[in-house]
Amino acid sequence: MIEPASAENITTDSLAPSDGGQDGAPGDSSRAPLLELTGLKFSYGAGSAFQLTVDHFAVEAGQTVLLLGESGTGKSTLLNLITGVARQQAGEIKIVGQKMRADKPAQADRLRGQHIGLIYQSLNLLPYTSVKQAVVMALAFSSLRRKRIRGPVDQEVKRLLNLLNLDATALFDRPVVALSAGQQQRVAAARALIGRPELIVADEPTSALDSKNQARFLDLVLGSLDRSSQSLLMVSHDERIAPLFDRVVRIEELTA
């Protein structure tokens, strides 16, 4: 299951350097990796002891990847780089063939909104929203994800909620604060999944849940993915969940 990060020899040259135009087309993503990091170097500044270097890391379309590591090893930093919030000193990050450039925040935000669904450890939802409002919120900032929904939005929201084992009819208009922590995380997952973004990024999404709910949450999220086009990159310190993923990468190996 555990695969060292030695893929750079295989994939770098096969990358088509074209920008844009391949929004969500599965044909394209099968050719090039969905997410690709090359020659990445990051530090918090000249005086900082912390340094992150990734020679090469790629996630293929439809793949589920677990990034394992203890806290303080740079997992969150790596996610910040991938989602275009932190800015690397050198190297390149590409999502669906487009460069993620944190030096151009507006561009990075747009790329993230269209192609990445995010799930955090906690505090994913705004307390004053209803379940439905919380899920469709993702569509407010992404025209692409809006367009991908065929048919009524409400129906798609219900489909996702049901897939995630939430009683859509009963919970649809309930305020999110009335839900349990486990249910809230599943609403957050529905929000990340709606409009089928190519990459779901989850940062320790189960750390606020008890062990029974942890396994259930992962099962449901993995089961709700559209495996033909959606990839999952999850960060965790919990080795026990490794068997659930296509591929497991240890952060120490990645950054060595």
Binding site: A106, L123, A140
Partner: peptide, 16 residues
């Protein structure tokens, strides 16, 4: 701030 952070994670630019 949480509201703003969530909007941003969903792709809202600071300008938006």
């Amino acid at each position: 701030r949480r509201e703003m952070a969530i909007y941003r994670s969903l792709g809202a630019t600071p300008l938006v």
